[in-house]
Nucleic acid binder design. Structure first.
Lengths: 336, 336
DNA sequence: TTTTCGTACGAAAACGTTTTCCTTTTTTTT
DNA sequence: AAAAAAAAGGAAAACGTTTTCGTACGAAAA
């Protein structure tokens, strides 16, 4: 630590510790001149208050936690960007935790956070999250909690999401209108809220256009990239392979591109693809990738703003916000 | 906070606070049975120690800080991934700060960290960092500090970098061997160590192959994407435009692709491109992008490991590690 | 038997703030 | 001129741990 504290400062100034503390916090009990002296000395000695002493006394950490499945992921990186922006404006610190899509990690992380290390938590669930006891337990301690994108479906809680159902519907409809008859759907995990909603949209679009749903075309991938490549390869190598792919997450679309390259399947002539994605290079791909693009940065901003509203005025504790932002469908060559 | 503390626990157990504390920390002073009782009660009441009280007393935060220019950036996202992996193994928490390439942000962040909020700092400098007073000041407080990728050139300090000079040289040589005679170099800021080294490699490669260096082909971009697009567009629209581009950072290569698309410049027929990049989609671009790929994840891991070595055995304070990892040049179609 | 030792636990200080309640001095009011 | 009020500052408790000393007691050593 910096070694210089209030005691030292007060000795240097010939004041009491409490007066110095008050001066630094701009209390009305301290005269303007004294404040000036104190500030000057604090500056001179490069005084930095001890955050732990302060947090201990005030029962405030000025810190929030962000719990996400992964960081090397365009969506989450952008979301964090938005979160950080708001947090920085508020003077808050941001602790980041990665669950790596592992439920046990998520559980222990959440448990740790019950110690009061943070004033609020932003979380996007991991693919294995089946029960949410850890989350209701955290919630019960009274610490503000906001879910974004991947939210629990069996718990009343504040959330920030996108119009997943509509987007799933539109994406599927888009493929159908482009001529697809057999549309595969690639997803991460049937436990995820986003998977449910996006697939509900997919199903309803199929229904609307009298296409029958084929379970063999619905692929639930796992967390191993190599295995997913195999799954997709198998899917696309069958004689009755699909003529369209709706991918509910970016990484599976990329894997699909790799597979198509490998087995020489022409996009979009032989198979059309559309995917949820925040790739900056979507339009530069060969062929350019049609996407449903979520406003990831805004999701981060909105989530953080909501969390800070909850942190600041606890009085409003009875109302539960559910914010829904719109994604945009961008047609490119992969589905022409 | 969780409301349940050592005092409460000790009352419940009929023990003193100190005994409970010792039991929880598995002290030899406490009998095995008592420890069992304490653990059971702690579990039952879901006791979580107050991290601030603990940090205040022990003068340890079990937290490190990561200070980076941006997060929506494949290199930094991967690096953080590696850092988090190591930190999690060590049971440390990770505070993330974004400078957004703004020196003032970097300064104030570093200043804040002098309060002792963290036990160590990992940092990659922002493009505007000219003086490093804030960093030497932080260093003087004795807090371990490791720089990665973008490191200060006028300060003796532990660093983790890649073979930037060699990579710059090889990339340029690669373009020359592919037939380029007029190779432009795009960089972020001449203040950055990576810019220096990569450009030194570029210059020496030109020299080796008797190509003369043209200042008009060396473009220093800034932090505004739209402005950069204009700069590149201007560069590529001239009659004596370059026939090769060596981009020292990923985002400028992407911008170059956009510009080439816009002004109908064929890659690689009319202009060849190679760039430092960690794009997962490099091979899927149109055309696929030749890259120098830094081991970003490993950089993160190595940096964090080095930092923890410094945190754990302060005794070794006199030695200064400089770790250099190798990047790999991957030839693809953009430079064929 | 006395002394030494080891085991198991408790009392209290310390970490550096913040905040509540005093105290002293000066100014204003009547 | 006395009383009241305001202004400026200080003493000390509190936040929840950790850790340094004690202390009590039974067992082993002398």
């Amino acid at each position: 630590m910096s070694g210089i504290n209030l005691k030292r400062l007060s000795e240097e100034l010939g004041l009491s510790i409490s007066s110095v503390s008050k001066a630094l916090r701009d209390s009305y009990e301290i005269s303007a001149e004294t404040k000036k002296r104190v500030l000057a000395m604090a500056e001179k000695l490069n005084y930095q208050p001890n955050p732990f002493a302060s947090s201990l006394r005030r029962k405030k950490s000025i810190t929030i936690a962000v719990v996400i499945p992964e960081i090397a992921n365009n969506f989450f990186a952008l979301a964090i960007d938005g979160i950080q922006l708001v947090a920085q404006q508020k003077g808050y610190h941001v602790l980041t935790y990665l669950t790596h899509e592992n439920f046990t990690n998520e559980e222990s992380t959440i448990k740790h956070l019950q110690g009061g290390r943070v004033d609020g938590v932003l979380i996007s669930l991991c693919r294995d999250t089946a029960n949410i006891k850890h989350l209701s337990s955290l919630h019960e301690t009274g610490i503000p909690l906001v879910f974004f994108d991947r939210v629990p479906e069996t718990m009343e809680c504040p959330t920030v999401t996108t119009d997943d159902y509509e987007s799933g519907f539109k994406a599927t409809e888009h493929l159908i209108k482009a001529g697809c008859k057999k549309i595969a759907c690639l997803s991460l995990s049937s436990l995820l809220s986003i998977t449910h909603k996006r697939m509900d949209g997919y199903r309803d679009a199929l229904k609307k256009y009298k296409l029958k749903e084929d379970p063999k075309l619905i692929i639930e991938c796992n967390n191993d990239n190599a295995a997913n490549l195999e799954l997709i390869k198998k899917l696309l190598s069958k004689k009755d392979r699909p003529d369209g792919i709706f991918s509910t997450v970016e990484k599976l679309a990329i894997s699909s591109y790799y597979v198509c390259n490998e087995i020489k399947l022409k996009i979009p002539q032989q198979i059309k693809i559309i995917s949820f994605s925040n790739l900056r290079t979507a339009s530069l791909l060969n062929p350019s990738l049609s996407t449903i693009t979520q406003p990831a940065f805004e999701i981060g901003k909105e989530s953080a703003s909501l969390l800070f509203r909850m942190i600041e005025k606890k009085t409003f504790g009875n109302r539960i916000d559910k914010i829904v932002l719109k994604s945009s469908l961008i047609e490119r060559n992969s589905s022409k």
